[in-house]
Amino acid sequence: MARISVVAPQILRTPSERLPIEAFGHKLIVHGNVQNAIESILNDPPECLLIQKGLQDGIDKTVITALKEDLKLSFLPIILAVQEKDIMSGIDFSRYPVDEIVCINAHPEEILTRIELSLSRSHRVADNNPLTGLPGNTSILKTIQGYIEQETERAVCYVDIDNFKPLNDKYGFSRGDEVIRMTARVIVNVVSEEAKSEGFVGHVGGDDFVFSVPVPAAESICKRILESFDALITLFLNPDDAERGYFESVDRQGRPQRFPLTSLSIAVVPCTKGRFNHYGEVSLVAAQLKKKVKAIEGSSYFIDRREDAEKA
């Protein structure tokens, strides 16, 4: 029982073709107008999208990429409806990052089976963090180990939300979760815009993230992330806390306590050629840096420059 958006003018055109799928309990949202379809998908996401390849002006490609790169929607299974000749000649799946394909002249029953498969597959994606949809520890480790082995120079950046616990305690975990999702979005959006395909973002868990970008871009990316975070975090605070400039609570003995407002800190470890042999060394340096950067009040970043000293 899922809501399925159909943006495919040549498929499921008649009520009788739609019947087998609807009889299975799915709700088909068939869009005649592509433009309206996209708006409604972004505003009110379905659970599965069936889109036809080769729509006017390459809108199909634009939409698929946008959805797959959007944090909240990256899990949405996309089925590409293709011509028979596409199947024979092959499809460049790096340009069409879809989850499933179906031929436009397939039987409605086959389409139903493909939909069912996509839905079930999307429920068992392994490593990704369920809250943010970002890759988890296994992928982070593999990615960084990959840089070391292939001698790709990258700045590996460890992001921490400071004073997250007082916010969680005061406003409840659901607001805390939203802060984490907001942080994830900010990081992903800045990294993907500035580093494009050379960037990577992972979610270690809780309030910890890791991202990696080309070394020269690291500083400006950190700055933009911190700026954006600071602008948005105030929207999560109650106005009185924001105005006061700190959280107030009472400890177990009934004594009033103060906590600084929630901020972000980033520890940047430039992984230059030959500096590290193993991921463990990177995270060790990061752990030391984190202490330094956490000690700075407010949102801040710290770039490890020791490697320069080593070189000199």
Partner: peptide, 22 residues
């Protein structure tokens, strides 16, 4: 797409940061 905000988003610059380029 972002209901969790206790305050809704009212400015273009904040919307841009949250929605992202794509």
């Amino acid at each position: 797409s972002f209901f969790g905000f206790p305050q809704r988003i009212s400015t273009v610059s904040n919307a841009i940061v949250l929605l992202g380029f794509n």
